[in-house]
Design a binder for these strands. Structure first.
Lengths: 133, 133
DNA sequence: AGTTGACCTGGAGTGCACTCCAGGTCGTAG
DNA sequence: CTACGACCTGGAGTGCACTCCAGGTCAACT
């Protein structure tokens, strides 16, 4: 199957401009063209875009994604380096998750504080009134 | 206790320039000054900076941090809105963590693929040789 | 008295990742 | 045959979050 740039954008969740931009900066090999010179993305292209968006979500900078993309073009000999990049990214993602968990704890603490303030503003221990009523 | 800008930077993990920048954009109330006109950060300032860096880590845009900072200046009446902001941020952090977990799975899958390629390149099933030796 | 180093100000510059634009080409629908 | 919408190109513009700079002040050391 092949897809117009609009369809590829829809399926990848990237904008049309971003697709052209990724091609310009060599994140994406130039896709095939139809008879009118319009881009025709393959399933492979879409798969690669899917993986790229995952890498992007992990916060990998475009620079590193470009390195990975370039290694991919150099075949099996570059597999070791590619794996190393992914292992490093895996480490950084795990770290980031831990960091965010810590932030979640801080947020929960603060939110609980506000909740206590709210209970005070509404009257001291409304639950007690219910019990004594 | 009060701290020079250099010390505040060291303790908050922000740069000196960033501290001045945060003050300019009203993320941070102007700290006290010493006799020579130099900034003297209080423990409260440091506490607030600590919280700000947590919010930043969660990916909260400066715009929202400014809103939160501004609400804080309006006292207890703004507590509800502040709590709502934090609850929303909490939600977005939890979502982000889930998203990153998904990426971790993709990375693990890819890394495992590369590991299999490596085992093939080194010779088919070296473990078998050990067993048969 | 002079030099040093930390700090000050307002404003300009940077890097990133897009995003938008003007002007042009195609192929199909009316 | 012309009007339309989707697409094309090269290049300029945007928003964010800093980061750097020039030129100046001040207190402390030598």
């Amino acid at each position: 199957m092949s897809y117009s740039i609009a369809e590829a954008a829809r399926r990848s969740g990237l904008s049309i401009d971003t697709l052209r931009y990724y091609e310009r900066i060599k994140l994406l090999d130039p896709p095939a063209r139809d008879t009118a010179g319009r881009r025709a993305y393959s399933d492979d292209d879409l798969g690669w875009l899917g993986f790229l968006t995952k890498l992007r979500t992990t916060g990998m900078p475009i620079k590193s994604m470009r390195e990975y993309a370039s290694l991919r073009r150099h075949g099996v000999a570059s597999a070791g380096r590619r794996k190393a990049l992914l292992v490093e990214q895996r480490r950084s993602v795990a770290e980031r998750i831990a960091e965010l968990q810590g932030c979640l704890d801080v947020l929960d603490y603060k939110i609980e504080n506000y909740a206590q303030v709210e209970r005070k503003v509404l009257g001291v221990e409304p639950d007690m009134e219910e019990i004594s009523a």
